[in-house]
Nucleic acid binder design. Structure first.
Lengths: 215, 215
DNA sequence: CGTGGTGTTGATTACTTTCAAGATGTGTGG
DNA sequence: CCACACATCTTGAAAGTAATCAACACCACG
C-alpha cells in the first residue's frame, strides 16, 4: 500500500459517516485512526483499556493455536464497537481486513463504563453463543448459509451483500478450509441460491433456501 | 425421582455451602430452588430478568436446531451465576444436569445491575470465544483434552475431576457424537493420560500430555 | 504484459459419524 | 440381598464429509 492508496484512505474521512460515533461518557474521544489492509490494531497479550469504534472498513478478531491454526471469533463492520476485555490484557488479536477507520476511546483508569459496556458485552455474548451452535452442530453448507444471512442482516437486509473479507477469513471464521468455502459457494451458485457480482460481492437470489439451510 | 430422592435433596440445603451467595444490590434474594436431574430451569423464548446462582449441582445451557441437534454452550457448576440476557427473553434453555440447588435473584424492573453484571458478561464472553477456537479448529482428542483441563481448573486444579454430565452432554458441548467422546476417553486411558475412577469421575495422570493436546 | 496473491477445481486421504451390537451400571421390585 | 430392566456407555464396521495435496484460473498491480 503506497501513496495513492493512502490518499484514497484520507479521502474517506471526508465522506459521510455510515454511523455516528457514540458518545462514551468518561472516555476521551480521539480522532479517527487509519489502518491499512492487514495491519494490526492490537495483539493478544497487549494491555487493554480502550474501546474501538469502526467508522468504515472491517476488522477481524482472532486467536491462534501454537501450530498456526487460526479461529476468527468475530468480524466487526462499520458502526460496531470492539476491544473491551474481561481483564487488563487483550486475549485476542484485532486486525484491519481492508483500509479501515477506527475511532479510539481511551478510558481513564478507574472510570466506570459498565453502564455503556454491558449491552455491548451481552450482544457479543449472544452472538458468540449462536456461533457456537454453527461451529458445533452445522455442516459446511449450513455454516456458509448462516454466515451469508448474518452478513446480509448486518448490512440492512438487502439482496446485495458485500463480503469485505477473503475466503481464507471466511474459512477461519466458520471452522472450514478455504477450499471447502469455495466449493460451497460454487454449489450455491449452481443451485441458483446466490450470484457472484464480484469475488467480494454476492447477490442473494433465494433467501428462503438460505434460511432453510442456515436454520 | 421419588420421595426418597427428594428427601436427599432437602438434606443438602443444610450442608455447608460450596460457595457463599453473592449479594446482588437491588435484587431480591429468594430461598434456594431445587431442581431434579433433567428438569428445566428456563426455556428459550421465556421472559428473562432473573439471575441464577448455582449452590450445588450442575446446569447445562443449550440451543436446539429444528431437527433436534443440540449445542450446549456452557456448563455452570457450584458458585457460578447465569441467566442474564441481551434482551427481555431467554435465547437458550437451562436445565439441571443432576439434583441442583439454584438461588434465584429477581431483579426489580428498571434497576441498574450493569456494575455487577458486566464482569460476569465479559467472563462469559471470553469463555465463549475460547470455546469457538476449540469447536472451530481442534480435533476430537484436542477438544476432550481442553474440556478435561477446563473442568479440572474449575474444580480447583486437583488430580481428581468430577464430570457431573453424561457423555451425551459432553458430546453436545464439544460438537462430537457420544461414540467419538467415548473412543477418545478410551484412547486417553490406553495412553495412561487419565484413569477412570468411575464413569463420572476421572483422575488426571499426565497433565502435561493433556496440556500439549488441549493447547 | 508479466507477476504474485487469491480463488477454483479435482483426486485422494483422513477423520468423524452413522449404524449396529454388546457391555456395564443403576435403580427397581421381588 | 438378589435378579431383572432400562439407561448409559463402549466397541466394531461401514459410510460420509471435509481436509489435504496439487494444478490451474483469475484478478489486481506494477
Amino acid at each position: 500500500m503506497h501513496a495513492q492508496a493512502a490518499a484514497k484512505i484520507e479521502l474517506q474521512s471526508y465522506l459521510p459517516r455510515q454511523s455516528p460515533s457514540p458518545a462514551f461518557e468518561g472516555a476521551t474521544l480521539n480522532p479517527v485512526s487509519f489502518f491499512h489492509a492487514g495491519t494490526e490494531i492490537y495483539a493478544q497479550g497487549e494491555k487493554a483499556g480502550a474501546l474501538y469504534h469502526v467508522e468504515f472498513g472491517a476488522v477481524r478478531i482472532y486467536r491462534l493455536l501454537a501450530d498456526g491454526r487460526r479461529q476468527i471469533s468475530a468480524f466487526h463492520l462499520a458502526g460496531e464497537t470492539f476491544g473491551f476485555e474481561a481483564d487488563a490484557t487483550h486475549h485476542f488479536f484485532a486486525e484491519a481486513i481492508n483500509a479501515t477507520g477506527v475511532r479510539v476511546f481511551r478510558v481513564a483508569p478507574g472510570t466506570d463504563m459498565s453502564r455503556q459496556l454491558l449491552p455491548l458485552a451481552l450482544k457479543g455474548l449472544t452472538r458468540a453463543q449462536e456461533h457456537l451452535l454453527v461451529l458445533g452442530r452445522q455442516n459446511a453448507i449450513e455454516r456458509v448459509a448462516a454466515f451469508l444471512l448474518d452478513m446480509c442482516e448486518r448490512q440492512g437486509g438487502l439482496r446485495q451483500v458485500d463480503l469485505p473479507m477473503s475466503r481464507n477469513d471466511i474459512g477461519d471464521y466458520l471452522g472450514l478450509t478455504i477450499e471447502t468455502v469455495s466449493r460451497v459457494f460454487t454449489r450455491l451458485k449452481e443451485k441458483g441460491v446466490i450470484r457472484l457480482l464480484s469475488l467480494r460481492s454476492i447477490e442473494i437470489l433465494k433467501r428462503e433456501a438460505l434460511l432453510a439451510m442456515g436454520e
